[in-house]
């Protein structure tokens, strides 16, 4: 081992190490799914905590979901609410959109990945409810600022591949939101596990409420009721 190699890390190696670090942090958690249905967007996460939330309202038609390190995505969530409320106040409520917010998150995460002491161990999802299912928007932003525009459904956090595969098989455009919720829960659970309302966190953006605040958080009783019906 020569002295010159000591302390030197190639840029490729540094990025790979950082990505590895962030990926490991995110994979420790559980996945969450957002999916479009006839009467709105359903977001469903595995979460045993009733207070430390992964899914939240950002604006009239926009919701936020985060996976990975809670305190880090919580900071991003608060920034998003502040951005949206300020923009809506300064211009108008119609001018607040998910794409702008997704770009801001991508910029911040990208900067954090290359320039901060440690990259943020988070993935976030910004969803916007459209007038029709075709107009629903889902932006998935990775820890390094990579931004993906998803259609129909999006899976983030944890071990996403098996969940995505299951969701791909069952997603249907004509499902009502309770049906969509049931499918999302099945996709999260897989064949070996059963998830109950107490271990789930669910938020919906309801198309019938367009014109006001469309986001609603479901209580455990309502989740249980919807799952038993579907």
């Amino acid at each position: 081992m020569s002295m010159t190699a000591f302390g030197y890390v190639s840029p490729e190696q540094m990025m790979a190490d950082r990505a590895d670090y962030a990926r490991k942090g995110i994979a420790r958690g559980r996945s969450l799914i957002a999916l479009s249905s006839q009467d709105g967007i359903v977001i469903c996460a595995e979460n045993t905590s009733g207070t430390l939330r992964k899914i939240s309202e950002v604006y009239d038609r926009i919701a936020f979901a985060g996976a990975g390190k809670y305190i880090e995505f919580e900071q991003l969530r608060m920034g998003g609410v502040r951005h949206a409320d300020f923009k809506g106040y300064y211009y108008s409520r119609r001018d607040v959109d998910a794409q702008t917010l997704a770009n801001l998150y991508a910029q911040l995460l990208g900067l954090s990945f290359t320039q901060q002491g440690k990259p943020m161990e988070v993935e976030v999802l910004v969803t916007e409810l459209g007038d029709t299912i075709q107009q629903d928007r889902m932006f998935h932003i990775l820890f390094d600022g990579t931004i993906n525009d998803r259609q129909n459904f999006a899976v983030i956090g944890g071990d996403t591949e098996p969940v995505r595969t299951r969701m791909e098989e069952t997603w249907q455009p004509d499902a009502t939101w309770p049906q969509a919720l049931a499918k999302a829960v099945d996709a999260l659970a897989g064949n070996e596990r059963t998830l109950t309302a107490a271990g789930l966190e669910v938020g919906i953006l309801e198309r019938s409420k367009i014109g006001e605040r469309t986001f609603r958080r479901l209580e455990d009783e309502e989740i249980a009721q919807m799952l038993s019906q579907a």
Partner: peptide, 8 residues
């Protein structure tokens, strides 16, 4: 319009 993130 920025993304307002504040230190504690």
């Amino acid at each position: 319009m920025q993304l307002p993130i504040f230190s504690p």
